[in-house]
Amino acid sequence: MTFAIVEPDAQLASREANHRFLNTLTALHGLLRNDFGGFVDPAVRDAVSVFSSRIQAFASVHRTLGEDSGQDRVDAAAHLAKLCAELCAAHLAPRGVRCEFRSDPANLPREVCQKLSLIVVELVTNAAKHAFGGRSGGRVSVSLRRAGDGWICQVADNGSGLGGGGAGDGMKLVRGLAQALGGALLVHSDAGGVIVTLRLADPDA
């Protein structure tokens, strides 16, 4: 006698929704490249490249966090290391900028890891686009470390600082995600670069 393992309807629906969402992102990436990739204007081509890479990065976040969907927790250190490598290849390396990543061992709830990942995507993308003004040889560092009874996630660059005061749409998104995590966000900017620090309470406390 054989037995078939039947997934609960909710889990099947979740897998199907995940698959459809990834297909949508793939289609959007293709449409963007096809519709705007032929422009000669360097500014348009650069904008298309950055936005296309951002779509790919978000797809990577969703794909990785969609793996083993029955698990409620994620190896955040391994996931963020993979994400930073992908962001570096897509955004930083083509500009001659390197990326460094360090993390303490971190097994975090999936929802927390997802929001942290989106924050890192946005901050690294912003640094690649605005921090270095066309110069090469820059550095973006990402870290996640234990701090007392909580966590600190930090993204820093050695670029030219925030000329506009950090009030762009990217930072608004980051602040919204930080608020959703119940975290405290600190942004320091000067001529030596930008340091964005997110302090989180231990989600298991």
Rank of each mutant, 00 (worst) to 15 (best):
52 S>Y: 02
105 P>N: 04
55 I>F: 03
30 G>M: 03
74 V>L: 01
160 S>C: 11
93 A>R: 06
100 E>I: 04
2 T>S: 14
11 Q>P: 07
175 R>W: 08
134 G>W: 03
53 S>D: 12
66 G>L: 01
193 G>D: 07
19 H>W: 09
90 A>I: 02
186 L>R: 15
6 V>M: 10
170 G>D: 00
175 R>Y: 05
190 D>R: 01
190 D>A: 02
100 E>V: 10
58 F>A: 12
23 N>S: 15
160 S>E: 12
73 R>P: 00
9 D>T: 12
65 L>G: 02
198 L>M: 05
125 T>G: 13
20 R>M: 11
190 D>Q: 02
110 R>N: 05
175 R>H: 10
103 S>G: 01
89 A>N: 04
47 A>H: 12
125 T>E: 15
193 G>N: 04
59 A>P: 06
156 A>W: 07
64 T>Q: 14
162 L>P: 04
129 K>D: 08
130 H>Q: 03
80 L>T: 00
181 L>R: 10
200 L>T: 04
54 R>E: 14
96 G>F: 02
83 L>V: 01
155 V>S: 08
194 V>F: 01
93 A>T: 06
22 L>D: 09
123 L>M: 12
16 E>K: 09
28 L>V: 10
193 G>P: 07
158 N>F: 06
202 D>A: 03
171 M>S: 08
183 G>D: 08
119 I>L: 02
135 R>C: 09
13 A>P: 06
